[in-house]
Computed example of a mutant assay.
Amino acid sequence: MLNNPAGFWVRFGASIVDGVFLLFVLGFVSLMVYKQFIVEGFSLISILEALYYLLLPVFWHGYTVGKRMIGIRIARTDGEKVGLGTMLLRNLVASLVYVITFGIGIIVSAFMVGIREDKRSIHDFIAGTYVTHDKPDRGI
Rank of each mutant, 00 (worst) to 15 (best):
V39P: 03
V39W: 04
V39D: 05
E40S: 12
E40G: 13
E40C: 07
E40D: 14
E40N: 13
E40F: 12
G41Q: 08
G41C: 02
G41F: 03
G41K: 05
G41M: 04
G41L: 07
F42P: 00
F42Y: 14
F42V: 12
F42G: 01
F42E: 01
S43W: 13
S43G: 11
L44G: 13
L44S: 14
L44I: 15
I45F: 08
I45R: 10
I45H: 10
I45Q: 10
I45N: 11
S46V: 02
I47C: 01
I47V: 15
I47G: 06
I47Q: 09
L48A: 12
L48I: 04
L48E: 01
L48F: 02
L48Q: 06
L48V: 02
E49K: 14
E49T: 15
E49I: 12
E49F: 12
A50R: 05
A50T: 14
A50M: 11
A50Q: 06
L51A: 13
L51Q: 02
L51M: 15
Y52F: 13
Y52D: 10
Y52Q: 04
Y52C: 06
Y53N: 08
L54T: 10
L54Q: 05
L54F: 13
L54V: 07
L54N: 03
L55D: 06
L55V: 15
L55I: 13
L56C: 10
P57G: 03
P57L: 01
V58P: 05
V58M: 02
V58T: 09
V58H: 06
V58A: 00
F59G: 11
F59M: 11
F59R: 00
W60L: 04
H61Y: 12
H61Q: 13
H61L: 04
H61W: 14
H61N: 14
G62T: 10
G62P: 03
G62K: 09
Y63G: 08
Y63R: 04
T64W: 11
T64C: 03
T64H: 02
T64G: 07
V65E: 01
V65F: 15
G66N: 09
G66L: 05
K67H: 11
K67I: 08
K67Y: 09
K67W: 06
K67A: 02
K67E: 03
K67T: 12
K67Q: 11
R68N: 01
M69Q: 10
M69D: 12
M69C: 12
M69E: 08
M69I: 15
I70A: 08
I70T: 09
